[in-house]
Computed example of a mutant assay.
Amino acid sequence: MTKNNQINYIEIPAKNIEATKTFFSDVFGWSFVDYGPDYSSFAAQGVDGGFFKSDLVVSTKNGSPLIVLYSNLLETTQDNIEKAGGKIVKPIFSFPGGRRFHFSDPNGNEFAVWSE
Rank of each mutant, 00 (worst) to 15 (best):
T2D: 13
K3H: 13
K3R: 12
Q6T: 04
Q6P: 00
I7S: 05
N8S: 08
I12V: 07
P13M: 10
P13E: 03
P13Q: 10
A14V: 07
K15F: 03
N16W: 08
I17T: 09
I17Q: 14
E18V: 12
E18D: 15
E18R: 13
T20L: 14
K21E: 15
T22E: 15
T22Q: 15
T22K: 15
F23Y: 15
F23D: 14
F24P: 03
F24A: 13
D26P: 02
V27M: 13
V27D: 08
V27Y: 12
V27C: 13
F28E: 06
F28D: 03
W30H: 11
W30N: 09
W30K: 12
W30Y: 11
F32S: 10
V33K: 15
D34G: 07
Y35N: 14
Y35R: 14
G36P: 00
P37F: 06
Y39H: 09
Y39K: 10
Y39N: 10
S40Q: 10
S40C: 13
S41D: 11
A43V: 06
A43I: 06
A44R: 10
Q45F: 00
G49A: 04
G50I: 02
G50V: 05
G50S: 04
F51D: 09
F52T: 08
F52A: 01
F52L: 08
K53G: 04
K53T: 05
K53Y: 05
S54E: 04
D55T: 05
V57E: 04
V58D: 08
V58W: 09
T60R: 15
T60Y: 11
K61I: 07
K61P: 06
N62E: 15
N62L: 14
G63D: 07
G63S: 03
G63Y: 02
S64H: 06
P65Q: 08
L66R: 02
L66I: 01
L66C: 00
V68Q: 07
L69G: 04
L69N: 05
Y70N: 02
N72L: 09
N72D: 06
L73M: 15
L73G: 01
L74T: 01
E75V: 10
T77N: 05
Q78T: 08
D79L: 13
D79F: 12
D79K: 15
D79N: 14
N80L: 15
I81C: 07
I81E: 11
I81Q: 11
I81N: 10
A84M: 14
G85N: 06
G85K: 09
G85Y: 02
G85Q: 09
G86L: 10
K87E: 12
K87A: 11
I88S: 00
K90N: 12
P91M: 12
P91V: 07
I92H: 08
S94F: 05
F95H: 04
F95C: 04
F95N: 08
F95A: 06
P96Q: 10
P96A: 10
P96I: 06
P96R: 15
P96K: 14
G97K: 12
G98C: 01
R99W: 07
R99A: 04
F103P: 01
S104A: 09
S104E: 12
D105P: 03
P106D: 10
P106I: 12
P106G: 06
G108F: 01
N109C: 02
N109D: 00
E110K: 09
A112T: 07
A112I: 06
A112Q: 01
V113G: 05
V113C: 00
V113A: 03
W114D: 12
W114M: 14
S115M: 07
E116H: 14
